[in-house]
């Protein structure tokens, strides 16, 4: 597309280096401008649907079907959000999603860190076999085991509770164990050995020494995991039937079905805005960490 031309100019105007530099930088400035325009046009495509979601949520039902479309509602209907708050299960959804996401990530991060420490820095029989065994778990896709898991949990009466979403996850997440173990492999063994000689217990070594070292990696994985659990949908729709017990994603999907027949698109879009917003805020705050750790997953994988 935009060809960054090399510099045949250097050969012709050998006499005046400042001149060539100018010619070159002018050309690269032109390329930069073209690139900027292309990227900006792309950015509009990326963001327009989301802006439209927000704008629709503030329209009247009539404006939704206006032709040509209205981008800025004449009178923003904030009332829709009030209606959503009182008439729908969005608030229950937020509460349930928070319960699941926080308990999974807080407890799960702890179990993952402990396991990663043991697998990276401790002597243990069958260590490699255990690690490789755990890794095979990644190869089993969730749809293959969702039916047996469902039957298991229904036998102990956990259908329509949040437990099936929380319990399997707090035993640890293999991907996170993998990354934390990788991260720990760059920590010298001599540090741990020294602490042992000083008489520290393994728990103390983990809590006082390993945790502070792996904190940045843990934080990044924690955020990514939180977002994944918050956005999860397949497992929640298997288990949660009662509206008060559903997570936010299931609540909004059900609202989509229920209110589409009434053509109440502002309400549906308002609920979608609420489902996206918390994660968007988390993203904007932790943007750098998230982007760095995502980039890291690619290079490590």
């Amino acid at each position: 597309m935009t060809t960054t031309t090399p510099a045949p100019t250097t050969a012709t105007t050998t006499g005046a280096p400042p001149g060539t530099r100018l010619g070159r930088s002018a050309r690269s400035r032109l390329t930069d401008t073209i690139v900027w325009v292309v990227l900006a046009a792309g950015a509009v495509f990326m963001i327009a649907p989301l802006v439209w979601m927000l704008s629709t949520s503030l329209k009247t039902k009539l404006e939704v079907f206006a032709l040509p479309p209205v981008w800025i509602p004449e009178v923003p209907q904030w009332d829709t959000y009030v209606r959503m708050w009182t008439d729908s299960y969005v608030l229950d959804g937020i509460k349930n999603s928070l319960v699941v996401s926080l308990s999974v990530t807080v407890i799960g991060t702890f179990t993952c860190s402990l396991a990663a420490f043991a697998l990276a820095k401790m002597r243990m029989p069958f260590k490699n076999a255990i690690f490789i065994g755990l890794l095979t778990g990644i190869m089993i896709p969730f749809p293959t085991i969702m039916i047996p898991q469902f039957v298991m949990f229904s036998k102990i009466g956990w259908v329509d509770t949040l437990w099936p979403l929380i319990v399997p996850a707090i035993f640890g997440n293999i991907v996170m164990i993998f990354f934390l173990r990788q991260y720990l492999s760059s920590v010298p063994d001599s540090l741990v050995e020294a602490a042992k000689i000083d008489g520290a217990s393994y728990w103390q070594i983990f809590w006082r020494m390993i945790m502070p070292i792996i904190r940045p990696a843990v934080a990044a994985q924690f955020i990514l995991w939180f977002m994944a659990v918050w956005n999860d949908y397949l497992a929640p729709i298997l288990y949660l039937n009662t509206p008060e017990k559903q997570t936010l994603q299931v609540v909004i999907a059900n609202m989509n079905v229920q209110y589409a027949t009434q053509r109440d698109y502002p309400l549906i879009m308002a609920a979608s805005v609420v489902a996206v917003l918390p994660i968007l805020v988390v993203f904007l705050i932790f943007q750098r960490q998230i982007i760095e750790s995502v980039a890291l997953t690619g290079t490590k994988g």
Binding site: R123, P125, G137, M152, P168, F171, G172, I174, Y202
Partner: peptide, 26 residues
């Protein structure tokens, strides 16, 4: 050390057996 290490990996191993391996065989 071995005992502590096994304790530390117990949760993911148990989770793997209960929620991945058993459902797969099932």
């Amino acid at each position: 050390e071995k005992r502590w290490a096994l304790l530390f990996v117990a949760a993911p191993v148990l989770g793997y057996l209960l929620f991945i391996l058993y459902p797969t065989l099932f």
